[in-house]
Design a protein around this nucleic acid. Structure first.
Lengths: 133, 133
DNA sequence: TATAATCCCTCTAGTGACTAGAGCTTCAAG
DNA sequence: CTTGAAGCTCTAGTCACTAGAGGGATTATA
């Protein structure tokens, strides 16, 4: 049996987060000692590991709840594909931001320089942007 | 003079968001008609445009507040550079997620197929990941 | 001038995924 | 038996909005 601090450390989770997961029903209610402290078994540890892995991949908690519920139906594939599409979307948007920001930062050469910095003008100038954000 | 709906439409903002910005002090308090409705001038419209542009580039509201306050000191450049670093960090992390997710989704070939889908196993299998998330 | 359609007002509460803190109790080691 | 770390509950805060209730203002048309 593990304490909450132990499963937290083993999965790279913070202790309040473990309690939060229990509170919203992602983790089952833990057994308690006579004094009221939580104790966990191997299954709980694995489940938390699964949750943290899925979180690290960007799945939302509701998606994770669905993944934990279905246990083998076809839905898992659809959820993962949707997540992959989301990630690719975000990548594309970030790439546009990056080039725009690089342009703005580049619009005045040095950081410690003397002249007035163009960053504010560049930020105010919407029309110079490629498009859509 | 513009109504709140007009400046919202012109800047691609939702009306409650404009009121929210006023509430947190990003926009000055608007003049009011006798009946209590907000009216805006050109300066307010420009300021809101600046805010929305900066938001679209991923700046947080506190950064934007700082950008609006300084009006020409060297800080703007530093803030923009930090934002650019943030964006590049996020891009790198997303790229790792993307390859991991693609692997997981690819681990079972078809969506509408018959056999059991490996997505859940792949999600549970932390060790197969390249690293660090 | 009356009315209807559209807009606007304030206020509260909810979102997602935690995180921080106060004030207290339990556990394990020595 | 004492001490110190770790645990407990509960409330509230984060960020940047968004939704809804219940009502008032403005404007265009008849």
């Amino acid at each position: 049996m593990f304490t909450i601090g132990q499963i937290a450390a083993r999965t790279g989770t913070k202790v309040p987060t473990v309690r939060y997961y229990e509170g919203i029903g992602l983790l089952p209610e833990a057994e308690r000692t006579a004094g009221g402290q939580r104790r966990y078994d191997r299954a709980a540890l694995d489940r938390l590991g699964f949750i943290r892995h899925a979180r690290a991949l960007g799945f939302g908690l509701e998606d994770i709840r669905a993944l934990l519920d279905i246990e083998g139906h076809g839905d898992a594939h659809a959820i993962a594909e949707r997540q992959l599409r989301d990630v690719r979307d975000r990548m594309a948007r970030l790439a546009r931001l990056e080039s725009e920001l690089a342009r703005i930062v580049g619009s005045c050469a040095g950081g410690g320089g003397t002249g007035p910095c163009r960053v504010l003008e560049a930020l105010g100038d919407h029309d110079a942007c490629a498009a859509d954000h």
